[in-house]
C-alpha cells in the first residue's frame, strides 16, 4: 500500500513534455498520474475522473494523437511527448468542427463525458476521415455517456466525418 511512501523522502524526477503545444517542465513523483498532473499542476480541468479503471473514458486525453485514459497513465509516461487536452482543441477561439457539431446536434448534456468523447472522436477522424457507423461505434465504445443515449453523439461525429448522412430527426433511419 501507499503508506510506505508517506512521510518519507520521496524520489522525484524531472520531465519535459508539450501540453497543448506549449513546452512544460515539471518535477514530479514517479507515481503521479497524468490526470492529476494535468488537473492539479496545470489547472486543465477538462479531463474528468470517473471510473478510475480505464472503462469510462471521461479522463481521455490524446498522447501523440492517440487517446489514453489519463487516470491510468503515469505523467512520467508522457515525458518527451505531446499531450492534447480539450482545452487545446479550439484554435484561436475557433471551435474544432467536432466541438461545433456536438453543440449543433445536442450531443452534450451534463458535459462530464464530453471532453473525452470529443478527443476520442478527433483521434478516430484523424486516422479514418470517413469511418462507417460501425467503425464510429466501435471506436467510441471506450467512452461512456449516461445522459445522451449516444444517438446524438453518433450523429455529431457522422456529420463531421462527412459520411453523407443528412441531419434529420434523431435515429429515425435504421442502419
Amino acid at each position: 500500500m501507499t503508506e510506505g511512501l508517506i512521510g518519507q523522502e520521496r524520489p522525484l524526477v524531472t520531465i519535459s513534455l508539450r501540453v497543448n503545444g506549449e513546452p512544460v517542465e515539471a518535477v514530479i513523483e514517479p507515481r503521479e498520474l497524468l490526470l492529476d498532473f494535468l488537473r492539479d499542476r496545470l489547472g486543465l480541468m477538462g479531463a474528468k475522473r470517473s471510473c478510475d479503471t480505464q472503462v469510462c473514458g471521461a479522463c481521455t486525453v490524446l498522447l501523440d494523437d492517440l487517446p489514453v485514459s489519463a487516470c491510468c497513465t503515469l505523467a512520467y509516461e508522457a515525458r518527451g511527448r505531446e499531450v492534447l487536452t480539450i482545452e487545446g482543441l479550439a484554435q484561436d477561439g475557433a471551435l474544432h468542427p467536432l466541438q461545433q457539431a456536438f453543440i449543433e446536434h445536442t450531443a452534450v448534456q451534463c458535459g462530464f463525458c464530453t471532453s473525452g468523447m470529443i478527443l476520442t472522436a478527433r483521434s478516430l477522424l484523424q486516422d479514418h476521415p470517413r469511418p462507417t457507423r460501425q467503425e464510429i461505434r466501435h471506436y467510441l465504445k471506450g467512452n461512456l455517456c449516461r445522459c445522451t443515449g449516444y444517438w446524438n453523439i453518433l450523429k455529431a461525429v457522422e456529420s463531421v466525418a462527412g459520411s453523407g448522412r443528412q441531419r434529420g430527426r434523431v435515429g429515425e433511419e435504421a442502419t
Binding site: 478510475d52 461505434r137 466501435h138 467510441l140 434523431v170 435515429g171
Partner: peptide
C-alpha cells in the same frame, strides 16, 4: 467497478430509435 458493472456503451445502441 465499471469493469464488472456493465452500463450501456455506444455499441449497445439499438439499430433504430424513434421518438
Amino acid at each position: 467497478t465499471l469493469l464488472d458493472y456493465h452500463v450501456p456503451t455506444i455499441e449497445d445502441l439499438p439499430d433504430a430509435f424513434i421518438s
